[in-house]
Design a binder for these strands. Structure first.
Lengths: 343, 343
DNA sequence: TACACCTGGTGTACCGGTACACTAGGCGAG
DNA sequence: CTCGCCTAGTGTACCGGTACACCAGGTGTA
């Protein structure tokens, strides 16, 4: 008779008339068990709604089947942004298909001070691995996690030549597409308003832009690094557009910045794309509804999350489908870019 | 000598020269322990970087200190939307301040088919409670979770008079603010383009709008329920604006819908707010950068998440600060609303 | 003086699984 | 016929904590 409360392996064993060990073997497919017994056990398990206790298994195996995603909300108040949300989607989908859980953690301290968080997570044995994002210059997390013995994967570009497994996109091809596109339209003076100089991704992108412009035989226009927010972008854009010799086209670090930039231009009496062309990044869906529809460097963040999770599972010794990863960026031309004004 | 691998309670006990029981008592503040012993134990624990094994504790106590958030990505491909992201921020912040973890789960099946997910989570003892969102008409989840004995809290409005604890905002006050605002500008014919009729929140909002319009002594304009997406909104808006006797102002179910609506109007040659006034909902930050800046019914989703988590902790028997909750909606007037055209 | 009671501990079973050692019986080879 | 080996299991220690029973010694009280 199934009593109240959750069923245990002992209940299942009793109902099937076998030992606990037999049940365990059936469940894990280890050892040898006759088909008849197997079926009886499986039936008993179904009858009793039995699921092995995640904690008992974790305790015995010293494996929690859980992965941590620690997000830093120190610099960006909306810790979980729309992009992060997509990332989570990709990660979780892959993880759960392999029976892994995703433990989400938000941190308020500045990066680096998070070390205590990771240490706790590891010491308490809550997670088997971690996924990192938003790598910064001089990031200490990869080294910390190696020291703690916690497998980890970085979504983005590692700082320096840190050997942490990662999912990175070379920013150059998409930047080239954008620059080609603008040159094709007749632009000769391009500006760049990217993310903060503390972030590896932002720095690499900026470098790629510089290189691309030079390789095209152009002079560099204004280049600014600022926070990934609309507010910062609006202000910086105003400065860039009021300075002498203003650029006729602007590349931004993300779509929010680009949209805020368009507003800054508008406030100055400059039309987009008539007076200034604008290119965003990330490809959030809202870009297609605004006026003008935003030309942007689209990025497949869900895929990025999926690949990161696969990489981590691989790191944990789980069999996964072959991981293929080339790039996920592509220029999506809409209407915020046009030939420059004929001065 | 601290050996390799994680320290256990036995290591700490040995180092402090006491029994495991003593260490446990110190840690949990149960039983009586002299100050001297207490200090020795605490010191030993620090020395060894000891954190009690989450799984051992969970196994013994039959409590996992973890809460599930199951998101349904069946109807809305970007399972984790920007709004959901804010919700998560609120939930996680509160949870982790009490030592609780947040386990995130995405589901692809239609609502209802998720029951298997919850059952598994419960049977495996992975979580102590759950937070639900996006309640639908005829939602079976609250009943299911009651049957499973899993404490749960709903973010949103329960269907019918389901007794599930919840965080709900009466849509009426904010709708009244919006309607007052529009009437004050001189509008007399208002349209409503809201979320799908399957969603409780969307239905209540629509009812509130109807009631508000009637109570103001106006005739009802066109009212449409559609999916919470820009694509759907764009199409529906076009239909509403091309039908005879078109409204001069439109209320939307969220900001994305509103922004897509503005585009639809623009494509028809109608200016916002000159020809049609538009009001969004949710108050995503992008609304402030677009042209025109979006008037919207702002909502404090982070706070909503915080309160939901508090409620759940309370349900779990944890002491929490007094939970105060009144409403979190307010009309934020920007520039997408203006007097109607003088025909 | 005897007894109850409090303080500050110790010893051990147990939570629900898994790993490993071990065994009974059947069968093929020498 | 005997041995070895394979199949299909059983028995039990153990993972790292917590709960509960118990105990020594000091103090208060009748």
């Amino acid at each position: 008779m199934p009593k109240s409360g959750r069923a245990t392996i002992t209940d299942v064993a009793a109902r099937a008339g076998v030992s606990k060990t037999a049940v365990s073997k059936v469940l894990n497919g280890t050892g040898s068990i006759s088909t008849a017994t197997r079926d009886r056990v499986l039936q008993a398990a179904r009858d009793l709604h039995w699921q092995p206790s995640a904690h008992a298994v974790a305790l015995r195996r010293a494996r929690s089947q859980t992965v941590a995603l620690v997000l830093n909300r120190h610099e960006a108040p909306p810790a979980v942004s729309a992009t992060t949300a997509e990332l989570i989607t990709g990660i979780e989908t892959t993880l759960s298909s392999r029976g892994y859980g995703l433990l989400l953690h938000l941190v308020d301290q500045p990066p680096g001070a998070e070390s205590e968080i990771y240490r706790r997570l590891v010491d308490a044995g809550r997670v088997d691995g971690a996924i990192l994002t938003d790598s910064v210059i001089g990031d200490t997390r990869p080294a910390l996690l190696r020291e703690l013995g916690l497998p980890a994967v970085l979504v983005g570009t590692p700082d320096g030549d840190d050997p942490i497994p990662h999912v990175r996109t070379d920013p150059r091809p998409a930047i080239d597409q954008a620059v080609d596109h603008l040159l094709g339209l007749g632009h000769r003076r391009l500006g760049f308003i990217g993310g903060p100089a503390t972030r590896v991704q932002a720095v690499r992108r900026r470098e790629a832009f510089e290189a691309s412009v030079r390789d095209h035989g152009l002079e560099l226009g204004p280049m600014v690094s600022t926070s990934y927010s609309g507010t910062a972008s609006e202000q910086v854009t105003r400065e860039v557009l009021t300075a002498p010799d203003r650029p006729t086209a602007l590349l931004y670090g993300n779509d929010t910045m680009a949209i805020a930039g368009i507003k800054a231009a508008r406030d100055l009496g400059l039309r987009t794309p008539g007076d200034v062309s604008v290119i965003g990044a990330e490809g959030q869906s809202v870009g297609q509804w605004i006026d003008p529809p935003l030309t942007t460097v689209q990025r497949n963040v869900v895929l990025r999350g999926r690949v990161a999770a696969q990489l981590l599972l691989q790191e944990l010794g789980i069999e996964v489908d072959e991981v293929r990863w080339a790039t996920d960026e592509e220029l999506l031309v809409r209407a915020s870019t046009a030939p420059p004004p004929t001065s």
